[in-house]
């Protein structure tokens, strides 16, 4: 990953046990000498190091030898319930996802809201994060070109992942709904700054389905 970063990708499935080990690895790596940051992704870990004091080959070897020793440690995590309007202007890909799944938009929304998701990693913008637990029937490939999303709080599906959009801007994910109550995802002066953290569980409550 360039001159001052390595991306460690864990072998195996995208699941909670593997992800807990990623979080545990992140905590260990952060204390190693020469490490500037360690950021969890979806069953992977981005490690940013100081290229003047840290040899990438030695770091790579240490990551590979440490991984088998890292234990699956349970996270405390909170349960956060968020009300959602599925479909409508801010979830205009609900029909597309439903068609691919061979379901009605209503069944699609109900299936999406039936799961308690686990926050696996910080998102592409701060505040919400990537969620794990999407039903395989709802897997939908990313778009060929990103489109502009006007609002934060968009619930979207990208491949085998689902998330809540934390910033307006270009996104290649399929929007299926939006939080019904606006939330400021991230405020560095608030305590805590983010709405959701890795390890939290998220339950979507259906406020409305606009077909």
């Amino acid at each position: 990953m360039g001159s001052s970063a390595l991306l460690f990708q864990a072998p195996g499935a995208l699941d909670l046990a593997n992800q807990r080990r990623i979080w545990a690895l992140a905590r260990q790596v952060a204390d190693w000498p020469g490490i500037r940051e360690a950021a969890s992704g979806m069953s992977n870990l981005l490690v940013i190091f100081d290229a003047q004091s840290c040899d990438p080959e030695a770091l790579q070897a240490r990551l590979l030898s440490t991984w088998p020793t890292v234990n699956d440690t349970p996270e405390a995590g909170r349960l956060v319930e968020l009300p959602v309007i599925y479909g409508g202007e801010l979830g205009d890909d609900l029909g597309l996802v439903a068609d691919r799944a061979g379901m009605t938009p209503r069944e699609t929304a109900q299936l999406h809201a039936a799961t308690d998701y686990v926050v696996f990693a910080p998102g592409s913008s701060p505040g919400f994060g990537y969620l794990f637990g999407l039903d395989p029937r709802l897997f939908t490939p990313r778009k060929n070109e990103p489109v502009m999303r006007k609002q934060t709080g968009t619930i979207a599906i990208g491949g085998i992942q689902t998330s809540i959009g934390a910033a307006a801007g270009p996104s290649g994910w399929n929007a299926i709904g939006c939080l019904s109550e606006p939330l400021v995802p991230f405020d560095p002066l608030r305590d805590p700054p983010s709405v959701l953290y890795p390890g939290d569980r998220v339950r979507f409550r259906i406020e409305a389905i606009v077909a």
Binding site: G2, L14, N44, L46, E145, G158, G159, Q161
Partner: peptide, 16 residues
């Protein structure tokens, strides 16, 4: 199918 990860300034991504 790529699992999302942290990215760094300078990364060259290729969308579809």
């Amino acid at each position: 199918e790529i699992r999302s990860s942290g990215i760094v300034p300078g990364i060259v991504q290729v969308p579809p």
